[in-house]
Design a protein around this nucleic acid. Structure first.
Length: 433
RNA sequence: GGAGGCGUGGCAGAGUGGUUUAAUGCACCGGUCUUGAAAACCGACGUGGGUGGAAGCCCACCGUGAGUUCGAAUCUCACCGCCUCCGCCA
């Protein structure tokens, strides 16, 4: 079976496994895992012994038939039939236990690294550093959807008519700024950070959602089509699963990719949260980075990817702080996560705009993505990382709120000017100039 | 939507009921040769699981799962995925 977790590691050090889960606020489960595991192995051993007997008898049957010994042939035939029943029964028992173990392990999240701060939720996240200083406003800054120049281009009413709540229609200048942001980010990562521009499907087979960890546990958070396709909640799903079932040469690592895609989330557990504005939508755009690396360079790659995301905010002159998530606030597949929180003057707080996670071999195990070490040797699981660079809708919010002026206009960071046809600001009447 | 085809090791590709312990080639690895390299030659070379100090031994795996059979990569059925042609369509 393909292990979702390293069963050998759990056998060798069940305390460490439980301790890691407890840091996530989960009960220790190694006892249950190991009892299933040892039971399963016992059944396997029995089944294999019986199978070996059957195989031996089967071979002798052929020989007896060949030399015309009918009596011996009949006797052995009988024996094989009996053994076969034994094997079949024992294998069924083993398979049952194997499936139960698999189901159990499938639902267990990745283990936090030791460096992850202990905590139960976002209040225990630890700030690593800040960049930039929030502006001093000589007026009271408002939220993005309240800015005079933004209002004509951000239409929640029409979107609600078309699609219900948590959707938006962007028009005119606002739509263009949104597009400009995505293009700018993509260009930055491709030309400055060496990531490979990638365009992927946004409908995927169920297996891919299992591979990155959305399934089987979090099906409620995503959308599925009548045909069985899943709409990706992030292009982490497609980019990471490019190595699904693959055995690649180590020399091709690291593989650094970036994609700009639509993302779809049902926000099932977010009722009542961020209901105004376009902070939390069912459909949004994101520029996503993914790295496929080997076991040795995973953590260095994490630092690098975090820098790639930070660089976007710095280029856009948006004040932010970099957090390391506490053990209780991390996502299912992550071993460690850096969140970038951008300053939103309208809310007077820092809000998540990027999340950069190192997943170790967790996702690779689920999708059986491996590499052949240089110089030969046994295949090893790749290590995977993903990070937003950045969420486009939230970047739009940040640019609008941080650039807002007393008269309801918005000034843009210089990096964006070329992407806006040279425009430097959004007037209070909604026009770009 | 209609019709047909295909799924074998990292890759390519044999194999249609029993010496398949899965041929062969390429790639990778070790070596010989060479000033060095290439070529050539020699050798090793699938994945997972169980067991065991170790060497080893055993089991499974030819998309997945059932079935037929003394015996299945090979036959049957279902499912999954891929491809081609036609139709429709950005």
């Amino acid at each position: 079976m393909t292990d979702m977790h390293d069963i050998r590691a759990i056998r060798e050090n069940p305390q460490a496994f439980d301790a890691a889960l407890q840091r996530r606020g989960l009960a220790g489960i190694s006892e249950q895992v190991l009892s299933l595991d040892s039971e399963r192995r016992a059944r396997i051993a029995e089944a294999e012994t019986a199978q070996a007997d059957q195989n031996r008898a089967s071979k002798e049957v052929g020989a007896a038939k060949a030399r015309g010994d009918e009596a011996e042939f009949e006797r052995l035939r009988q024996l094989v039939t009996e053994k076969k029943a034994d094997v079949s029964r024992m294998q069924a028992e083993a398979a049952l236990l194997d499936n139960r173990l698999r189901d159990l392990l499938m639902a267990i999240p990745n283990l936090p690294l030791d460096s992850v701060p202990e905590g139960v939720d976002e209040n225990d996240n630890v700030e690593l550093h800040r960049w930039g200083n929030p502006r001093n406003f000589d007026f009271t800054p408002v939220e993005h959807f309240e800015i005079a120049g933004v209002k004509p281009g951000m239409d929640f009413e029409t979107a609600a008519k078309l699609s219900g709540s948590r959707f938006v229609v962007l028009k005119g200048a606002v739509a263009r700024i949104h597009r400009a942001l995505a293009q700018f980010m993509l260009d930055l990562h491709v030309t400055q950070h060496g990531l490979e521009e990638t365009w992927t499907p946004i409908l995927v087979l169920e297996d891919m959602m299992v591979g990155t960890g959305q399934l089987p546990k979090f099906g409620e958070d995503s959308y599925q089509t009548r045909e069985g396709y899943w709409l990706i909640p992030t292009s982490e799903v497609t980019l990471t699963n490019t190595v699904h079932g693959e055995l690649v040469d180590q020399s091709t690592l690291p593989r650094r990719m970036v994609a700009h895609s639509q993302c779809f989330r049902s926000e099932a557990g977010s009722a009542g949260r961020d209901t105004t504005g376009m902070l939390r939508q069912h459909q949004f755009e994101k520029v996503e980075m993914v790295s496929i690396t080997d076991a040795e360079s995973g953590l260095d790659e994490h630092a690098r990817m975090t820098r790639c995301a930070e660089a976007v905010l710095e280029a856009l002159e948006l004040p932010y702080r970099t957090m390391v998530l506490s053990s209780g606030d991390m996502g299912f597949s992550a071993r460690i996560t850096h969140d970038l929180e951008v300053w939103l003057p309208g809310q007077n707080k820092y809000r998540e705009i990027s999340s950069v996670s190192y997943c170790g071999d967790f996702q690779a195990r689920r999708m059986n993505g491996r590499y052949r070490p240089e110089g030969g040797g046994k295949p090893e699981f790749v290590h995977t990382l993903n990070g937003s660079g950045l969420a486009v809708g939230r970047a739009l919010i940040a640019v609008l709120e941080n650039g807002q002026q007393a008269d309801g206009s918005v000034t843009f960071p210089a990096a964006l000017h070329p992407y806006l046809g040279g425009a430097t600001r959004l007037q209070a009447d909604g026009k770009l100039v």
